[in-house]
């Protein structure tokens, strides 16, 4: 049995496949961003991944890079991020996705030297349930893993199409909450098809008893259906939602209108995961 520190997160994956949307907190400003997150939850989100923007987002494609730039421009900082989370009126678990330097530096003025503990402590205080840190491989994750265990938070790791053998073992020893299955090589970004690498990755992970959420390139309800039918316990969607936010920024649309579009897109994706679950359930009954 793999670790599960957060009960809320475990429960979110327990009742069937989870729809996990991602947005960058503060994109394009705190007030709209709050409305957008709440709209996604109304649309059926089971978990929300919230990006804390970092100036060098090396794992992101152009869509999320732009969202991060907008959020930084609007003045988002780690402390404002925690306040933003504390203010959110949602009843689903929240996972913070960010890069290690921000986790490492937080609270440094207080403690005198960098380290992940103050960040995790503060995150626990505002009700965050877990972290995804894409530039922190299992080899370097010890201190953050310890802090997460101390405060009862989960640490999600990415498994890439290139992750095999011993590496996979090492990651699975450390992962908790869910594993982020990277659907294809490259950076984040909406695509028009589902990659075969996804099925292969899910196959490699089948024996591990931890929820498997697939992300990178998922943009429609049909993608979500296929991926869940293929054995995933959840789908993570970021860029396709951020495209909606970006359109709203470009056309200067009112926040309420953009929120309504996000809610509708969330319903489409959630319905896709449900259809996929039916297909997957039917198949397991046959076998």
């Amino acid at each position: 049995m793999t670790r599960a520190n957060s009960r809320a997160l475990a429960e979110a994956f327990a009742d069937g496949p989870a729809f996990v949307p991602y947005l960058v907190a503060g994109d394009p400003d705190c007030e709209s961003s709050k409305a957008y997150v709440e709209a996604l939850v109304r649309g059926g989100a089971d978990v929300v991944e919230l990006g804390l923007p970092f100036s060098e987002p090396i794992a992101e494609g152009p869509t999320i890079q732009s969202a991060i730039a907008r959020a930084l421009e609007s003045g988002m900082t780690p402390e404002r991020f925690f306040e933003f989370v504390a203010d959110l009126d949602v009843d689903v678990p929240l996972v913070c996705m960010t890069y290690y330097n921000l986790v490492y530096q937080y609270g440094r003025e207080e403690t005198g030297e960098p380290g992940p503990e103050p960040f995790v402590r503060r995150a626990a205080e505002v009700g965050i349930e877990g972290f995804v840190v894409p530039d922190l491989p299992a080899e370097e994750a010890g201190p953050l893993r310890d802090a997460c265990d101390e405060y009862g938070l989960d640490l999600v790791f990415v498994v890439a199409p290139t992750t095999r053998g011993e590496r996979l073992e090492r990651i699975m020893e450390q992962v908790s909450g869910y594993v982020y299955v990277q659907a294809r090589l490259g950076t984040t970004g909406a695509r028009s098809d589902v990659s075969r690498a996804t099925d292969e990755s899910l196959d490699r992970l089948r024996e591990y008893d931890v929820p498997k959420a697939v992300g990178f390139g998922i943009s429609t309800g049909d993608h979500a259906e296929r991926i869940v039918a293929g054995g995933a316990d959840g789908v993570i969607v970021g860029s396709a939602l951020i495209d909606v936010v970006a359109d709203g920024v470009e056309n200067d649309d009112p926040t309420a209108e953009v929120a309504a579009r996000l809610e509708e897109k969330a319903r489409e994706l959630k319905a896709g995961t449900r259809r996929g679950a039916t297909a997957s359930g039917a198949r397991s009954e046959r076998t």
């Binding site: 491989p137 080899e139 370097e140 990415v158 890439a160 290139t162 992750t163 990651i171």
Partner: peptide
């Protein structure tokens, strides 16, 4: 030092 990179790159770095 160390290796702070996305997981997808780790096999190539190894």
């Amino acid at each position: 030092g160390g290796q702070y990179v996305p997981e997808a790159l780790m096999p190539a770095i190894e």
